[in-house]
């Protein structure tokens, strides 16, 4: 079996074993216990414990500086790239400890993709941008397989029709919304299990935002998505689960509808009604 075939097989295996279409009986994908992050002497996140279900969209909301992005970045250990960041506590993906010394962040990040606030396509062609992940991880045996992966990924990201005839143009030549979808296509090209999105629409206009939100909803079918967002409307639109962070702590977590219609915590109530934020 070539890596490509494994890739295809992997995708189907997951759908069979992980997806429980029955409401309320999600399988837990990501489970954290007491996650704390320090930047130097400054504590950015204190003791967050949460269980995130598979094949759903979970959104993190909260005022600026509440630690939601920091938490997101610890899930695929992107905080490793920051010199003075220290992460403690436990983060389990499918029961495996992420912060274990034996876990290679390279492998982890192949499983947990990430999309950033500002679209950051590499200074390469559209094709090379999407092909980059499969290339470095050796997922395609030949050019045909790679072409297939690129096409599938771009299709899943809903970008194929717009760029099919100009794959050899630089990724930076696309519009902002297109760039963000390109980056999403790049992330799903390695078929990750979890996709982290850090305010994916904050740099986009409303039309592009709507397009991305649609895409997120489509992706839910195959991937576990975690989204940090500033827009409560967006959280309400795209996510099934919502977590509210405040001052580095997780205040409230539950099904989106509940959080927005019947928050249990006063701070959540204040935030979603716009008293502060």
């Amino acid at each position: 079996m070539t890596a490509y075939e494994k890739l295809q097989a992997g995708a189907s295996v997951r759908q069979e074993t992980l997806y429980h279409p029955v409401e309320g009986s999600y399988t837990t994908k990501v489970a954290t216990k007491n996650v704390t992050v320090h930047y130097g002497d400054k504590s950015a996140l204190n003791g967050v414990s949460i269980e995130i279900p598979a094949c759903t969209v979970t959104s993190f909301i909260g005022p600026s500086g509440c630690g939601k992005s920091t938490f997101l970045r610890s899930i695929n250990r992107m905080n490793d790239t920051i010199d003075n960041a220290r992460v403690s506590g436990s983060i389990l993906i499918d029961g495996e400890e992420v912060n274990d010394r034996n876990v290679d962040p390279v492998v982890l990040r192949a499983r947990v993709g990430m999309v950033f606030q500002k679209p950051n396509p590499f200074p390469k062609t559209i094709y090379e941008n999407v092909a980059y992940g499969p290339r470095i991880h050796g997922l395609a045996a030949d050019k045909d397989q790679l072409d297939a992966i690129v096409e599938t990924s771009l299709r899943k990201a809903g970008l194929w029709d717009e760029v099919a005839d100009r794959l050899d143009q630089p990724g930076t030549s696309l519009s902002g919304g297109q760039q963000q979808r390109l980056v999403i296509a790049r992330a799903i090209a390695v078929n990750p299990e979890v996709i982290l999105m850090d305010e994916p629409c904050s740099a986009l206009d409303p039309i592009a935002t709507a397009r991305i939100e649609e895409l997120i909803d489509e992706l839910r079918e195959n991937y576990t998505l975690i989204i940090v967002t500033h827009s409560m409307a967006q959280a309400a639109r795209v996510s099934q689960m919502t977590a509210f962070f405040h001052l580095g702590s997780l205040v409230e977590y539950g099904p989106t509808e509940e959080i927005f219609t019947n928050p249990r915590d006063q701070r959540t109530q204040d935030y979603i009604t716009g008293r502060f934020g």
């Binding site: 097989a9 997951r14 495996e96 492998v107 192949a110 991880h137 050796g138 997922l139 078929n191």
Partner: peptide, 16 residues
């Protein structure tokens, strides 16, 4: 072990 063995195998194979 993980249920995603096939993909991770592919990644692990090239890792060294």
């Amino acid at each position: 072990m993980s249920k995603l063995a096939p993909i991770r195998d592919a990644v692990m194979e090239r890792l060294p």
